[in-house]
């Protein structure tokens, strides 16, 4: 009942992702994992997998796959066309794929990433407890290439009795709640006003490590270098050029630039295309 998933076309960036490898940051190992864990969890539930099973994170251009055996899949996340053979399918619900039938996902019409769950999960060998591709540290399987063969696990449960779920909204403007600190005292009051009062745009240099933003630079009140300190998901780090960077799943475990604030929930950034407007707001001001 297991089988193989053949990668006919890998697309721009398709990686294996589960819920990551937390607990190793003290050794310099990033958390990694799906950029929108709730989306991957939902996709897994739809196909009857445990929520932590590994699936694929598919970026913008989509990908094309072919299971060797009949299976059930679900795609959750960005709005994208899904085709099973010649038949159109839907995102957000379980889809039966006959053995040998090509499964085409994307490109994304709106948003940036979607998550594909396959019944039984992607069964590549776990590394430090996770099957996730870590694009920063190079742990886990390499990003998919055309012709790769991915082992599939044995399905545990039948697909969920769900007809359809709501698609994930991908607005052109994101409002992200932040808490100031831990190093907001390293910035001028004007910097805090700019952070909370002006719009930033998602830069094309953004990736799984972080969403780079461009907009009003955030001037420092304290010059010099901050001794390296631990980083969390959602940390808004401000490097020398003053342009903020919001750390995502593949963020480094420590960093030497001050963190002005931390975003409560970074998952909307997983769908933010370059050019998307981001506004920060915080309860403190």
């Amino acid at each position: 009942m297991s089988g193989t998933l053949e990668v006919l076309r890998a697309g721009a960036l398709t990686t294996v992702q589960d819920l990551g490898r937390p607990g190793w940051a003290h050794l310099g190992v990033p958390r990694s994992g799906a950029l929108d864990p709730a989306a991957l969890r939902l996709a897994n539930r739809l196909v009857g997998n445990p929520e932590h099973a590994a699936g694929l994170e598919i970026t913008l251009t989509g990908c094309e796959l072919r299971p060797t055996r009949a299976t059930t899949v679900a795609v959750v996340g960005a709005e994208a066309d899904v085709r099973v053979g010649q038949r159109p399918g839907d995102t957000g619900r379980p889809l039966a794929v006959p053995g040998g039938a090509p499964l085409r996902i994307g490109p994304a019409r709106q948003g940036l990433r979607c998550w594909l769950a396959v019944a039984g999960g992607i069964a590549v060998t776990p590394v430090l407890g996770s099957r996730s591709t870590d694009t920063l540290a190079g742990l886990g399987p390499a990003p998919l290439r055309d012709g790769d063969l991915l082992p599939l696990g044995t399905p545990a449960n039948p697909p969920a009795p769900v007809d359809v779920t709501m698609p994930v909204a991908s607005p052109t403007e994101l409002r992200l709640t932040v808490r100031l600190g831990p190093r907001h005292a390293w910035f001028t009051p004007a910097a805090l006003d700019r952070l909370l009062g002006t719009a930033y745009q998602v830069s094309p240099l953004s990736n799984r490590v972080g969403a780079r933003l461009s907009g009003a630079p955030l001037p420092r009140a304290v010059a010099g270098e901050l001794p390296s300190e631990g980083l969390v998901l959602g940390a808004v780090q401000v490097p020398a050029d003053g342009q903020p960077l919001v750390f995502l799943a593949d963020h480094p475990t420590t960093g030497g630039y001050p963190v002005i604030a931390v975003v409560d929930d970074v998952t909307p950034l997983a769908q933010a295309r370059p050019g998307t407007t981001v506004r920060f707001h915080g309860p403190q001001r």
């Binding site: 937390p22 607990g23 940051a25 001794p227 390296s228 300190e229 631990g230 980083l231 969390v232 420590t254």
Partner: peptide, 14 residues
């Protein structure tokens, strides 16, 4: 979940 020492700090995450 994480206890991360660094140069002058210890981060507790999770």
């Amino acid at each position: 979940v994480e206890i991360v020492p660094a140069a002058t700090t210890v981060l507790l995450d999770g």
